[in-house]
Design a protein around this nucleic acid. Structure first.
Lengths: 192, 192
DNA sequence: CTTTAATCTTAAGGTGTCTTAAGAAATGGA
DNA sequence: TCCATTTCTTAAGACACCTTAAGATTAAAG
């Protein structure tokens, strides 16, 4: 299956499109190929595209004043990964987005998407639902990190995202959980 | 200004409505009055309404297994406060929503809102933009709590939400920041 | 007012997680 | 196959933040 077919079946999980709409929609997205470690978005740039992962794995991370990295989100096939803040407000991104594997993404420019909202209203609904889900997932994560210990968060991450756990290095999982790799290592030893 | 006029001018900040649409929209919302400490949504219930604060102050909080409260969000006039997870997925709420002052909210039921999306498409756009903003604010908060110390978070809260700081007790701010009231008290002493 | 409840402060001792530093193990490139 | 790089582990000391408990202040209620 090529990248656009993957996107199409992804869209079909949520909305209905007729043949004409499908071609309008697919024409609006462009494929982009990333090597491992290649950076798709740099902090400081304005994020101008929504991007769908057709194949591969990305991470979005924030770099604080002390140059420490904090992973905000992982993404694999079928996910949308971006610095939404930058995309939505058209201000410089606070996050980097980087490929952790050779990756294929489908991008749509903000302007093209806004046009598309008018041409194909179901797409506006699609993104409204995406934002709702993204919000809900993030809220869950925020509540979790407020009320749970690192050990609990790690166990939850493992059961929820086993496929991701197997694809990314452990120190990145630590970063996602908000702990140091050393401490995660100690936790794992204790758990076994 | 009565509650519905407040809502109307709130909507007008984002979308345009003609007179007919305005009346369709306003008819869909119902006023509700809350006494101080009254609970608008209990954890375990399904949240069926989007709710707009016309006057007053609410908090959304999560209660963990050890019955400790964690404030997820404050809301004052002009804000929307809810357990979006419950509302969107129609599953039992994880959060309580409670009035911290005598409060007037305008509620719209999920079914009525879904109808309204079809009758007045601008409303769908309005809520899409709301969700985008909500997401962005939450992400900001999540990144913040991952990469900043309690002291930094407190100073940021103070400069960002001074109006809220003056209206709610300090131990609730501690809860929002994810620290104990004792520790916040110590921080304040140190800062002065 | 007076009383009660709510909120804030202080202080001592404890715990979770971090920092630093070093080495071991795994992975990838030539 | 070997070297270089990346990733993971171990361990000791440090620090941010918590727990508990008590008392002081402030606000609410009769």
């Amino acid at each position: 299956m090529d990248a656009k077919e993957i996107l199409l079946s992804h869209l079909r999980e949520t909305i209905d499109l007729n043949t004409e709409q499908e071609s309008i929609v697919l024409d609006s997205y462009k494929e982009k190929y990333l090597k491992k470690k290649e950076v798709l978005l740099f902090a400081g740039e304005i994020s101008n595209h929504m991007q769908f992962i057709a194949k591969g794995c990305l991470r979005a991370y924030h770099m604080d004043e002390e140059a420490k990295e904090h992973i905000v989100q992982f993404g694999i096939e079928g996910w949308w990964v971006n610095d939404l803040y930058s995309y939505l407000t058209e201000t410089p991104a606070k996050q980097f987005v980087q490929a952790l594997e050779p990756t294929t993404v489908l991008q749509i420019h903000r302007d093209a998407l806004n046009e598309l909202y008018n041409k194909v209203p179901a797409i506006e609904r699609f993104y409204r639902l995406k934002f709702e889900k993204a919000y809900v997932a993030l809220q869950d994560r925020t509540i979790n990190s407020m009320s749970k210990s690192a050990e609990e968060r790690y166990l939850e991450f493992r059961s929820k995202y086993r496929s991701i756990e197997q694809r990314v290095p452990q120190y990145m999982i630590a970063s996602y959980l908000g702990i140091t790799p050393e401490f995660l290592s100690a936790l794992r030893k204790k758990i076994k």
